[in-house]
Amino acid sequence: MRAALRLFLFRLAASLALVAMAGPGWAAPHLIIVNSSSDGAYGEASAALRSQLQRTMPWVEIEEQGWEEMAAQRLEGSRMIVTIGTQAARVVAGLSPRQPVLHTLLPSSAYSRLPNMPKSGATVSAILLDQPAERQIALIRLALPDWKRIALLTGSDSEALNLRLGELARERQLEVREANVNTDRDLYPALQRVLAEPAVLIASPDAQVFNSFTVQNVLLTAYRHRSPVVGFSSAYVRAGALLGLYSTPEQIGQQAAETVQKVLSGEALPPPRPPRQFEVAVNANVARSLGIQLDSAERLGNELARREGRP
């Protein structure tokens, strides 16, 4: 009863505040976006966030700031803060603002290392870049139903993810080949071991294992072993991965807008989440060369979304 009353009072106050703030002459914005950069992916995420909010909540005032000149007083008066990218997230987390903070466009490994993280997640949350393990395994089962073996290379940043991927794969009767990569020198023998027989190699966003320098070793070795690679970005597919599963900055921006909308309407900040919308990409040249028949990226993406309960 008391809780219901508190919620009612909160909503009333919020509504009054909104009405008040919508009036002319109000200086403090409702939402502050702290961006790691105004260019590229960061700019795209910010643009998507703002255009979505302008459509659904045109009265909300938005101010975008760079992380470089950030200070506690610049955040004062706003109702909510959205950060884009790890750099912005670090700076804002360091200031421990009282408002709800939504960090976006950062991987879970970076999120878990942010400073001053509150014990309870009431005021801080995130939309992470990492695709859920369930979705990755579902894509492999959908796109490559004849493939019964997956390969995982695990570094210190991918232990949890690969553990989950391994569990899910085994539940679905997939054989799992795993190897640890702790130093650069481990990569070559690890690849040879896990790909001794052709397998679907799932690249994880663990910079120790999969980075721009090792991408050559990984893709060339996998190709020679006639093993398809599932990457986590469109660049991976362009580079030579057979399949890619990723979310665009635009999709993350849109999801952030929906969260902002809810919080500004008085709902609580949801817990950190993976991106809801995603893209599937296919490298048709690699598929043809490996002799693998694949559905189009669009059909795979739609079917995967349908299985997740979305149209």
Partner: peptide, 26 residues
Amino acid sequence: ALGDAPEDAYLGDLPVVLSASRLAQP
């Protein structure tokens, strides 16, 4: 265009490794 940000793994560019000359023609 690859910096130190952890999200660069997701957002950064990568070289085309399996280019036409490296892919065996079926």
